[in-house]
Design a binder for these strands. Structure first.
Lengths: 309, 309
DNA sequence: CCGAGAAATGCTCGAACTGAGCATAATGGT
DNA sequence: ACCATTATGCTCAGTTCGAGCATTTCTCGG
């Protein structure tokens, strides 16, 4: 390779936990950035490089990890030193611990960065009162009629038109639409707006985009893989489990049906113990049946297979 | 960044088409490698870099593209020149065209690389007669009892025990298991075996692993996104469509139910024309309703949502 | 001790979806 | 005209899914 084409590899982590019914993400610099570090020649693999960075910066051990996405078209060549930056991001799940370190690590609710993504108390008022009006203005101000129609369509596709059509997985598409419409601070060329954090707290570089990617991936994944359990304590009540899923999905679930779903899947077993007072009738405690991760690689088909010939 | 930590970025493409009821992948060097190139400082983005490489090497235009995975722990530092290689892979879908170029591009059936993945004519005989016996021997030869049990479990989990438990999505896991068991040539330290290509043709570097990743991703994706249509001609019969899906999934589908599924989803519309003689009664021709890609971001939930409060 | 409030659990019911397969309709070939 | 082959329509029963009623068990304020 020639020096000209060499790149520096940056590892960025989206580490998620759920505490107090809130989905949290591990941040540094007082919530302004995700844990990040350079992939060094001494690291054995991407994963080990990432683990060592996160642990160095936050003193927090990681559990489950999966690769998220690799970004390269990021437009910051500030230093001018030449050479581009490739950013490889990972999604990690863990239970919140006490993070510490010189980089001021902290667990922040991810809704602080995407306040419009929380529909747990019904349709987001922020979407209805602020975002949609502004987006519609943006759509209307296009000079080209085709562009206007296309913008309107994208607004409809990503933000839906009602609680039934809201699709909680489109986190990234929504963020990118807001970005394109110039409604998030990262996109504004001018100085800070007069509305601090109304449309979510900004983060350094493209970290908010990476976070959106992580949230979207996790919201999709909880539907077909038993990953929520990575975020739960060793034993928990079914309501606690439901609250964790709701925190991630940003939506309320039907209690009885949620329970039916869980035990149909045989993912948990009773510990035999009872949760002391949770406000009403005491609840049975359950634990995750880790064996299922080994038994079945899970996931069912959706194709109409035909029986053997 | 210090020079020591700089890396060269390699782009690798898994380009897929379906022709003659076979899933094909675009290769170079006579089928021995995937189209690859260095991500140069002149490329605007990863995607454009990839497109330019593939088009230069194969003279073939690309349609749909998505990022697959980023590999770094590849163990070839042959040149010793220092600096590592990061390999960013992409999955592309297109219709087969005449590829050409100095690199000898060619469309190869992907089952040439993974012959055990084709179950369209019932349970793979290769799996039953060759693979499972060898894997079981490998499992049995472990000295540690726990290792033996674990190997047996992994064999069961990835290869299943019958046609009903075969999971076509586990392409990567199966390849990696075979690799670990030393059954694929890439893993063998010694020279070529006496069984040319019995367990699939080998490819340069880790290209077969990348291909496995692509096949797995595509097999998963056809179930929840209308991506097959990227591989179809402008108009087609429902049987052609079914054969394409079967080619990708490596399994036979139930004809009537497949049709029901397709039109329930409203993905196609009649062109009004009739296919001339396909061996039996003439079939209606259909076209993909591209609008659906815009309308719905698709995908349904699986969470038991509760109605508005 | 009594009644209200909050949760935990059990169950039911009808609508929608799925897996399998029977039956009939068109064509080309022998 | 009969056969092989593919296209299409429809049926039927088993399962899954969305909603919601009914009961059970605790805690807490009076």
């Amino acid at each position: 390779m020639t020096d000209k084409d060499a790149a520096s590899i940056e590892l960025t982590a989206v580490i998620v936990a759920v505490t107090g019914d809130e989905p949290r993400v591990l941040t540094i610099r007082g919530g302004g950035a995700l844990p990040t570090g350079v992939f060094e020649s001494g690291h054995r693999s991407l994963q080990t490089g990432l683990r060592s960075w996160v642990e160095r910066q936050t003193h927090h051990p990681l559990g489950y990890i999966e690769q998220l996405y690799t970004f390269a078209d990021r437009d910051r060549m500030e230093g001018g030193a030449g050479g581009r930056v490739i950013s490889i991001s990972y999604l990690g799940l863990t239970r919140e611990g006490r993070a510490s370190g010189e980089h001021v690590p902290a667990w922040e609710s991810w809704y602080r960065y995407f306040p419009w993504e929380d529909w747990r108390s019904g349709p987001s008022r922020l979407v209805a009162r602020v975002i949609l009006p502004r987006l519609r203005r943006w759509a209307a101000e296009a000079t080209d009629a085709a562009t206007r129609r296309d913008r309107a369509r994208r607004i409809r596709a990503t933000f839906g038109t009602s609680e039934e059509t809201w699709n909680e997985e489109l986190v990234l598409q929504r963020y990118e639409l807001l970005y394109e419409a110039g409604l998030v601070p990262e996109a504004a060329r001018s100085g800070p707006r007069a509305e601090p954090e109304l449309l979510g707290r900004r983060m350094a570089h493209d970290h908010r985009r990476i976070l959106a990617t992580g949230v979207a991936r996790l919201r999709a994944k909880i539907k077909y893989r038993p990953v929520v359990f990575e975020l739960m304590p060793p034993s928990f009540t079914l309501l606690q489990l439901q609250r964790a899923v709701e925190a991630l999905a940003g939506r309320r679930l039907h209690k009885q049906n949620f329970r039916r779903l869980i035990d149909q899947q045989g993912l948990v077993e009773e510990t035999g113990e009872i949760a002391t007072a949770t406000g009403g009738r005491p609840a049975k405690l359950f634990r995750f049946r880790r064996e299922v991760l080994l038994e079945r690689a899970v996931a069912g088909t959706k194709l109409p297979l035909s029986r053997s010939a």
